[in-house]
Simulated scan of single mutants.
Amino acid sequence: MKKRKIELAVISDVHLGTYGCHADELITYLNSIQPKKLILNGDIIDIWQFSKRYFPPSHLKVLRKIIGMASKGTEVYYITGNHDEMLRKFSNTSMGNFKIMDKLVLNLDGKKAWIFHGDVFDVSIQNAKWLAKLGGYGYDLLILINSFLNWCLAKMGREKYSLSKKIKNSVKGAVKYINNFEKTAAELAIENDYDYVVCGHIHQPKKEVYETKHGSCTYLNSGDWVENLTALEYSFKRWKIYHYNHDRLSPFFVDEDLKEMDMNDLIASITDKEVDIEDITEKQHLSESEENIDRDFLDDQGLSQD
Rank of each mutant, 00 (worst) to 15 (best):
L232N: 00
G136N: 05
S304H: 08
I11N: 06
D24H: 06
G96Y: 03
I6S: 04
T218D: 03
K240T: 11
H285C: 15
E288R: 08
H59C: 13
G17D: 04
N82D: 10
V198C: 06
Y54K: 02
I33P: 00
W151P: 15
D109Q: 03
D224M: 00
L229W: 14
W48T: 04
E159I: 15
D43K: 04
P35R: 10
Y244S: 01
D224Y: 11
K52D: 15
N97M: 09
I33N: 00
Q301P: 08
M156V: 11
S235M: 03
N97H: 10
V171N: 12
K168I: 08
I145F: 11
R4M: 10
L142H: 15
L303T: 01
P251S: 15
V175R: 11
S222W: 09
E274R: 14
L303Y: 12
V197T: 01
S235Y: 06
S164N: 13
G173T: 15
F98E: 02
D119T: 06
N31Q: 05
K283V: 15
Y29Q: 08
S162E: 02
N97R: 07
K259C: 12
P35D: 15
N228R: 03
A70V: 09
G157A: 01
K165E: 14
M261L: 13
F55D: 08
I202S: 05
N192D: 08
G215S: 04
R248K: 14
I44C: 03
H83A: 07
N221Y: 01
V62Q: 00
P251C: 06
H117V: 00
Y196S: 07
I178V: 09
V275F: 07
R158I: 12
V10K: 07
D299S: 12
D299H: 05
T184R: 14
P251K: 09
L220G: 00
C199H: 09
D140R: 08
L8R: 02
H22G: 07
F236G: 02
D195L: 13
T184L: 01
I267S: 00
K52N: 15
R53G: 13
N146L: 12
E208T: 06
Q284M: 14
A23E: 01
V14F: 09
D257M: 01
D13G: 01
D122I: 00
E227Y: 11
T74H: 05
E288H: 13
D276W: 07
K5N: 14
D306M: 12
I39T: 01
L87H: 03
Y210F: 11
